[in-house]
């Protein structure tokens, strides 16, 4: 297929939601890897709440990308948000790190915030998170950088307040969901793409509704997209 939910233009704000049986890590990892490969000059910032540096490195190394080298050269900044104890000291310090890192960047930079839900669950107030995301968005727009924000949806069909607020900031909403019929070896889940309030003109990116969501299968280090009904098991 020609278009996948990962082929989105640069310089956008992308909200990625997932559920426990279908984590959206693969989108973040693939975005980072393709960004490292395509944009040598660009700056990359990973703001990680739950996932350790080791996993980012391990998956990138399978694509022949050495993240440690990137970090040493200064083109990649990995921020472990947990080490700042955001539930006590707030998110201001983390924002300062991002501002510092984006200071001398080229237009096609990438900022990944993984994830905002855990921040909320461990005690950071929703208002603080929203303000942080809004400030990040402003910085990214200023530097024409791409911002990916990951959010976990815990109750199907009941979007929480944080999600509603974040949705207002987003250009696109990538909706990663498990199959309604349960886990399968041939299909890991499906991805829909919705337009946000700030979406670019419809001609540039065509949304993918849930009824025609693109299915994917995870491999050790990547994912394979296919249309519904074209899985390995069916064909």
């Amino acid at each position: 297929m020609s278009f996948t939910p990962l082929d989105l233009p640069q310089g956008i704000i992308q909200l990625i939601t997932d559920e426990l049986p279908s984590p959206a890590d693969f989108i973040l990892h693939q975005k980072l890897i393709s960004h490292v490969k395509e944009s040598k000059e660009g700056k990359r910032i990973i703001l990680s709440v739950s996932e350790g540096w080791a996993k980012w490195q391990a998956i990138a190394s399978k694509h022949n990308v050495n993240l440690a080298q990137e970090e040493n050269s200064g083109s990649l900044t990995f921020v472990d948000i947990s080490s700042f104890e955001p539930e006590e000291s707030g998110l201001r310090q983390i924002f300062n790190v991002v501002v510092e890192a984006l200071k001398e960047c080229t237009p096609d930079s990438l900022v990944i915030l993984d994830d905002v839900s855990t921040l909320e669950w461990i005690g950071v107030s929703t208002l603080d998170i929203l303000r942080f995301c809004r400030a990040l968005r402003a910085q990214c727009i200023k530097h024409q950088a791409t911002l990916l924000i990951r959010h976990h949806l815990v109750v199907y069909g009941m979007p929480d307040q944080l999600f509603r607020d974040l949705m207002q900031l987003a250009t696109y909403h990538v909706d990663v969901r498990p199959l309604a019929s349960g886990r399968s070896g041939a299909v890991s889940g499906e991805v829909a793409l919705h337009l946000g309030p700030n979406a670019l003109p419809p001609a540039s990116v065509k949304p993918i509704p849930r009824s025609r969501a693109v299915q994917y299968r995870l491999t050790d280090s990547g994912s394979i997209f296919f249309e519904r009904g074209n899985s390995h098991g069916v064909l």
Partner: peptide, 9 residues
Amino acid sequence: SATSSGGGG
């Protein structure tokens, strides 16, 4: 199921 033709759950 991933390798066979079934693709079961």
